[in-house]
């Protein structure tokens, strides 16, 4: 492959004054902003309606304020997941091996941004709304798997980060030569492991049905979530794969000031 300078390869259109490898920066920041607005909005909604309408699942207002939110979330997430994953698949690069080093580097930046948005979604699910569940269980008497906080944490936040993780996986698989030639084990672990957290909701709810209705967070019925969370460590392997490839690519380019 011909060795070229970065300057000569600068064929892509810059967004504003951004460097060529950060072409997707605004989309990335936009993703953070949208996710922040969604989650802050959901939290405000909980603050406004949870005590007023979310304490008993048998009341009609519970259907109006919470189950409709639940169904709305399902429909929205399924639609967006289908749309996003289809888009990533149908717009795939049919010949990623032909990429220039520069284009491939830019796509590595894009993949890192996808994974970063994925981890931002993991933050809301695994940190904020997960622990908030303990707080809400000090208010509500458990009477449904669809509590005002479960509807946000289990049935929105978990599928949402799965959507983002799946997108990152598909992006890598369809656009980057190294990830297209073989299936990255760490990327697969980092996406499929946390996916199992959603599946663990079944174990959790089964346990609460058969054992206890109080909220003891360190209980074994919650450890399915824990094990799923460990797979986040595989992001370290993705970093190593990316760094190895990107330093190779950088070495193929001439220095530019």
């Amino acid at each position: 492959m011909a060795v070229t300078t970065l300057e000569k390869l600068d064929g892509t259109t810059n967004a504003g004054n951004l460097p060529w490898y950060l072409k997707d920066l605004y989309k990335y920041l936009g993703g953070f902003a949208v996710i922040t607005v969604i989650y802050v909005g959901l939290r405000l909604y909980q603050g406004a309606y949870a005590v007023a309408t979310g304490l008993d699942s048998t009341l009609p207002e519970y259907d109006a304020y919470w189950m409709r939110l639940f169904y709305g979330e399902l429909i929205t997430l399924m639609s967006f997941t289908a749309g996003l994953w289809s888009y990533l698949w149908f717009t795939r690069d049919r010949n990623p091996a032909a990429l220039t080093p520069k284009a491939e580097l830019r796509r590595h930046f894009a993949l890192t941004m996808w994974i970063s948005i994925y981890t931002f979604a993991v933050y809301w699910a695994g940190s904020y709304f997960a622990e908030q569940d303990n707080s809400w269980h000090q208010v509500v008497i458990r009477d449904t798997p669809f509590t005002a906080n479960h509807i946000v944490v289990f049935y929105f936040s978990f599928p949402f980060y799965i959507m983002m993780g799946g997108s990152a996986w598909l992006y890598a698989r369809t656009r980057l030569p190294t990830f297209a030639q073989g299936i990255s084990l760490p990327l697969t672990l980092a996406v499929f492991g946390p996916f199992m957290i959603l599946v663990s909701v079944g174990f959790n709810e089964w346990g609460h049905t058969f054992w206890f209705r109080e909220e003891f967070f360190a209980a074994p019925i919650h450890w399915g979530f824990v094990i799923g969370g460990w797979f986040a460590l595989a992001v370290g392997g993705i970093l190593l794969q990316e760094v190895a490839r990107m330093t190779e690519l950088l070495d193929k380019l001439e220095d530019a000031s």
Partner: peptide
Amino acid sequence: FLYIGSFHLNVAL
């Protein structure tokens, strides 16, 4: 965000 999300979940549960 990765380590807040995952480590916090590990500790909380």
